[in-house]
Simulated scan of single mutants.
Amino acid sequence: MKRILVVLAFWAMGCENQPQQEKRKSFCLDENFKNKIEFYTTRLEEVVEGTHLTGSIIANPEKVVEYRPLWEGTVVKTYFTLGDKVSKGQLLAEIRSTEGNTLQATLSSLESRIKAAERKKENLKHLLADGMASQTELEEAIADLEVLKSEKVRAQTESKWNHSQEGYFKVYAPTSGVVTEKSINIGEQVVAGGEPMFVISDLEDLWLMLNIYASNVQRIQEGMEVSISTLSFPGELFSGRITKISPAFDEDARVLKARSTFENRGGKLKPGMTVDVTAWKKAGESAVAVPVSALVFSDNQYYVLVHHSDCKVEVRKVEIAVKNKEKAYLSGGLSEGEKIISKNQLLVFEAL
């Protein structure tokens, strides 16, 4: 009697499992599934290792102009606001000051002193040839002349961008770009050598400054390609290349600084933004690669869904050798040319 009951129990269990097994065997990708998923054909690719870095966007320091007043006065008019695009020679402000005549007098004085210094230099040349002067005296005269010429250039530059008329200075933009800082308002006093009145930056030429921590120094080299992402544009990547690595460690920040150029599509990246960066290094070997988005992680193992046909989808375990944000390079589990589900594979995985 007991033997009969045991047989009946196994028979009942078999009947319960049979519909589920038939369901698994009969699973097919219908049109609803196929409209939601995407496929990817595996191929051999050169293994590329990614190293995560942080960084920030800055304006090229060589194309940032700080404009400091070289005289005292009162701001009476401004013709720009923060963020304005300005052109070289554009009128930006008017300053009431009595130092315009002083500037012109300085230029006249410098021209006279330069002429006298040139005559002195020529005389010393003749005296040196006659043995009446020393080489040191001639070199000192030449140095004095160069100093005067430098002072004249500075005064001419000041005069060029600060036109004086009837007690007013008109301030013109010394370069083209975007006003990234403005510190003057109507009625305020400006002081010679004081804070910059404004800063003009060329935002068409930006730098990405990277922070390389000590643990990553050996992995980063000049010429490496980088991918740049920011919270301001989620899901969007910008491409760049490391062009310069500092030879000295920044002791305050405890990082090695590096500079990268990058493609700033649509001018989306702005100075002051912090970004996440992945630096790519080719390992010199190839492996079967799959998109990271195609992986299924379950029970501490990675799987992919291999598509043989719409009614034959295989869940297959894979071994990952190297993985970065975009690709996983496999050491086992898949061969080149196999077709896998690379989007919404979890929907299929749960249905199998």
Rank of each mutant, 00 (worst) to 15 (best):
L8Q: 03
F10Q: 00
M13I: 14
P19M: 11
Q20K: 14
L29W: 05
N32M: 11
F33A: 09
K34L: 15
K36D: 10
F39D: 00
T42G: 03
H52W: 05
T54P: 04
T54F: 13
G55E: 11
G55S: 08
G55N: 06
S56Q: 12
S56P: 00
S56C: 03
I58A: 07
A59C: 08
P61V: 08
P61C: 09
P61Y: 10
K63P: 00
V65I: 15
Y67R: 13
T74F: 14
K77Y: 06
Y79E: 12
V86H: 05
V86R: 05
E94W: 02
E94A: 13
E99A: 04
L103G: 06
L110Q: 08
R119G: 00
R119P: 00
E122R: 12
L124M: 13
A129P: 00
G131N: 03
E139K: 15
E139F: 02
E146K: 14
S150G: 13
K160L: 15
H163I: 13
E166V: 06
K170I: 00
V179T: 02
T180D: 07
K182W: 02
E188I: 01
E195C: 01
M197Y: 01
S201G: 07
D202I: 10
D205I: 08
L206W: 06
N211S: 15
I212G: 10
Y213V: 01
A214P: 00
Q218S: 14
E222D: 05
M224E: 13
M224T: 01
S227M: 05
S229N: 11
T230I: 08
L231G: 14
G235N: 04
G235D: 06
F238D: 04
T243H: 09
I245F: 11
S246H: 07
A248M: 11
A248G: 02
E251N: 10
A258E: 06
R265K: 14
G267A: 11
K270W: 03
K270R: 12
G272W: 07
G272T: 08
D276V: 08
K281W: 02
K282M: 03
A283F: 00
G284P: 02
P291N: 05
S298A: 11
C311H: 06
K312E: 14
K312N: 13
V313W: 09
V313F: 12
E314Q: 12
A321D: 15
A321K: 15
V322I: 14
K325Y: 13
G337V: 02
G337M: 05
N344R: 14
N344F: 10
